[in-house]
Write a protein that binds this DNA or RNA. Structure first.
Lengths: 223, 223
DNA sequence: ACAAGGAGTGAACGATCATTCACACTGCGC
DNA sequence: GCGCAGTGTGAATGATCGTTCACTCCTTGT
């Protein structure tokens, strides 16, 4: 054999792979799924179209990995919040508000990953992560129930799904600051986002809060 | 002039147009947007592809009209509920639960019209009707505020958007009965749907209910 | 140097569909 | 019956993109 995978080569391969992913992500982040074409990715990564296919078997798998990387990070952040101590209600509030705030840091990307029409295959990866987020929310609700903070007359999985749908829509819906792409860095924009995040989080908490009668009946101490 | 639009001809034209719309709707209702191809529509309506273009300028306009017809009906139903008398909270509950129950009568169609990935142009018509639904919900919230039934610390339009997102997701989300297409007519299925609708509606109401403290603290009269 | 074989290339291919258009057909008034 | 003009036709067109592959270019061990 006159050829072997030396570290140098392997490093280059890794680098190419990363460049492809980075280029793909950048394209989605700027132009949404419309720009997300293999030829564009190759051009942005400074290589030929065919080369992309040395690293990814198909467009769908490439972009699924992009989506996966971004989404997993968000799931991790939420899971961390869910795991932190204290009563469930503030944890839920923080989780929702944090998600909204983080998403608003890159609205175009968030829109593409959450709501923009796209290929069925990419869409499926999307569902996976939406389910993962829903699962984290469910776990918070579950713990809130155990502590008697939260209502028991709705199934936790249903409640989680509804909450996730609610904040996703609040995030990308027509009245969200998403439309006004301009002054994304101004103080006014930041305040607006913070306020929106807080309101959405408030509603999420209220939608699963135990009715007062419940709370009164069982006075308890935090764990 | 050796030709004029006789009533007989006009009737046939109208009929063709209706047949196209019906065929298009049926296709979406069975196979979603994947089946929604102009050639398929023509075949289902028993005519040639080109004929469809005598009645609709483009695929997008054709399907936008399909979506419009179905959605407008739902908006009307919700508006009727919103307009009915009584306190706002039960009206909100009824509106949400009714929407969910009605959508469940044709889950495949509902999924396509609400959530399935589709062309940008069709998607825009979708947004219009989602906004219309949101508007109806907002009006209920608004009246609930005036009657001091509902919280005043979230913007009504934000609240409406979040609620709409919540029930849409609850409707088409992974845990909805949408997946199990089978026994759509059994009693068990019907009960399941009714229960889901009720739970989603309960959450919607809770998310905008006035906290007890508010009601006590700020007894104010409507403007 | 050199051969072996992996990596890079990008023009060409092919699949999918919306859309068109030259032509045939049909109902109409004369 | 005759010819006009609206209507129906469906094969052909064209545009878009994902994917391929015959070829060249490198890297590496001898």
């Amino acid at each position: 054999m006159a050829y072997r995978q030396t570290p140098a080569v392997e490093a280059r391969l890794q680098d190419n792979r990363s460049r492809i992913l980075a280029a793909a992500r950048a394209l989605v982040s700027e132009g949404g799924w419309g720009e997300a074409q293999v030829a564009n990715v190759a051009a942005a990564a400074g290589m030929a179209t065919g080369t992309v296919y040395r690293y990814f078997p198909s467009k769908a798998e490439l972009f699924a990995e992009v989506l996966s990387a971004v989404s997993q990070r968000e799931v991790d952040v939420l899971a961390e919040i869910a795991r932190s101590g204290g009563p469930a209600t503030p944890r839920l509030h923080t989780a929702v508000a944090t998600f909204v705030r983080r998403a608003m840091r890159n609205p175009r990307l968030a829109y593409a990953l959450i709501a923009e029409p796209c290929d069925r295959e990419i869409d499926e990866a999307r569902l996976t992560y939406r389910a993962a987020i829903s699962e984290v929310i469910r776990s918070i609700i579950e713990s809130g129930r155990e502590a008697n903070e939260m209502r028991t007359d709705v199934r936790p999985d249903v409640a989680a799904t509804v909450i996730v749908g609610g904040f996703m829509e609040g995030l990308v819906g027509p009245l969200s600051p998403l439309g006004r792409q301009q002054r994304r860095t101004t103080e006014a924009y930041r305040r607006e986002v913070a306020q929106l995040a807080d309101q959405i989080a408030l509603m999420a908490c209220a939608s699963v809060a135990a009715p007062p009668s419940n709370v009164r009946r069982i006075p308890r101490r935090p764990t």
